[in-house]
Amino acid sequence: MNNYSRFYALLNRLPVHDEEIKERLVLQYTGGRTPRLREMTSAEYRTMCDALDRSLKDGWSIRREQLRKYRSAALKQMQRLGIDTTDWARINAFCRDPRIAGREFGALDPEALEALAVKLRSIERRGGLKQLAPQPALKPRAKQHIIYVPLDGLPN
């Protein structure tokens, strides 16, 4: 294991970080075997980084993760209903409908996204979105032309 970027990124998020804290963390997760990061096993390293990550979760990052989860669920439901989820204009147009969400997709908070996913599942249970029947193409009318033919053979 040569890349310790995850550990150092987490260490830099700590309010106070120095060499002594790093050594104490490594000693703690190696059971006192070594203070050196490079002598840790990959399992010890993963355990330490996961624990640091959990302890550094703040309200903002938890809310962002929750938002990502609900957005993913809503997009998956839209995809099941046949909406092209690669086109943000279509997604936003669909969500702007007052019967769906009444706002653009990006403006929805986690609670609104959860409600949207419930609504989409309900639509799916009822048979999906109704496709508008294609309108038959109207036959173009033949233009009427008036041809004036004088009966006496002389032009007017």
Score class of each variant (00 low, 15 high):
P35E: 10
I100N: 06
L116G: 08
R121Q: 13
Q77H: 04
A74W: 01
Q131P: 06
S122P: 00
Y45I: 04
P140Y: 04
R103P: 00
S122D: 11
R54W: 05
A117M: 04
P134D: 14
L52R: 06
Q66H: 08
P134T: 14
D58H: 00
L67H: 13
G102F: 03
K139C: 00
Q144L: 09
L132W: 02
A89S: 07
R99M: 09
R63F: 09
G106M: 07
A101E: 05
G82K: 06
T30K: 11
A137K: 14
M78W: 03
T86Y: 04
D97M: 03
I123F: 12
C95R: 03
A51G: 07
R141M: 10
R33K: 15
R141L: 14
R38S: 10
N92W: 00
R141A: 15
R36L: 15
R141N: 08
A115W: 05
Q66N: 09
L56T: 03
T34W: 01
K76N: 11
D109S: 04
L151Q: 10
A101V: 07
L129R: 09
D58V: 03
P134H: 08
R68K: 15
W88N: 08
G31T: 02
K130W: 05
Q66G: 03
Q79L: 02
Q131L: 14
A115K: 15
H145L: 10
I123Y: 12
A133N: 07
W60G: 10
Y70I: 01
I83Y: 01
S55W: 02
T41Q: 11
A137P: 06
E104R: 12
I62A: 11
I146L: 13
R36T: 06
P140A: 14
L25Q: 06
S122V: 08
K130S: 13
M48L: 15
L81N: 07
A142S: 08
S122L: 09
E104D: 12
A133P: 10
A137Y: 01
R46K: 15
L120W: 08
L75E: 09
K143P: 10
T41C: 07
L52A: 08
A117E: 13
N92I: 00
D109G: 09
K76L: 06
R141T: 13
Q79M: 07
R63K: 15
